[in-house]
Write a protein that binds this DNA or RNA. Sequence first.
DNA 1: AACTTGTTGCAAATCATTTGCATGTATGGA
DNA 2: TCCATACATGCAAATGATTTGCAACAAGTT
Lengths: 151, 151
Amino acid sequence: MDTLSGKELLQFRTAPQLKGFRLTRERRVILNVLLEAEKPLTAEEILERLQADIALSTVYRTLDKLVRRGYVQQTLLSTDGHAVFELTGKAHRHYMVCLDCHRMFPLASCPIKGFHDRSAEEVDFEVVDHSLVLYGYCHDCRARRKSLGSQ
Amino acid sequence: MDTLSGKELLQFRTAPQLKGFRLTRERRVILNVLLEAEKPLTAEEILERLQADIALSTVYRTLDKLVRRGYVQQTLLSTDGHAVFELTGKAHRHYMVCLDCHRMFPLASCPIKGFHDRSAEEVDFEVVDHSLVLYGYCHDCRARRKSLGSQ
DNA sequence: AACTTGTTGCAAATCATTTGCATGTATGGA
DNA sequence: TCCATACATGCAAATGATTTGCAACAAGTT
């Protein structure tokens, strides 16, 4: 169940963003899944990967807290309305999502990195995270559309 | 009800993205609301602004078609899970959303403008739109947090 | 004017996410 | 180490935006 190494546990305990965040068994397992994830996961997918018997509502509540603290990044996909989650700390990625087949293709780099907006300073807004999705058509679907015409 | 000028109607009829898109009375009214909108709207807000009696499901179905054609841009807000829509053609804006109070602050510019990613070329993905939201904490909420501590 | 095919309205269904409440437990202090 | 208490969990029910089935309609075509 709880496969966290001492080092990882320590990381959670000492992360400034997690101050006052109770490290329950459930939360450790969830954090572990996020640590090992190779891509952003939906709450449901996280639940499937847990080897423990945890309520889905607990997964949602935990993710909510982590997102509020900026420890986890949440991305909503307009193609299916699901939210996906990944650790903010991980090298984060953005995706191109095909409007037809809904497949996701990772971007090579983050266009937001190092970006500073005039307005942010003006209104004194502290950005802790961002969500970016590019929408369009993948190679395969464009080929298919070309031969069918659009409906 | 139908306040489209001949010019605007012509625009819809001739837009390449709308080829094969039947211009019904309902769709003209919906497009008109989008044209006149000063900010991204939810489906519900669009319905309220319609002076015609149109089913909410029709609004959704129309928006869906327009999004698929890249004529309308859809943004999902992770703070409340609602989708907002605006014409892709309009000068589009992105927002900073406060994780505490959920207020939206527009960005002065679009960080994606002119951005080209290596991967897009590699996988031959045609980007037609994008969705970007910056999350963080606004001035007011930061001040409030400082005095209360986080829970 | 008739046809064909996509569109609408309505109401019911979906389905991810949220919430109330009674029970359980992590964490700090004695 | 043990307690108290505030915060977490599980369960099941509620929510609420979005989707869908289906029969009646209508846009664009021939």
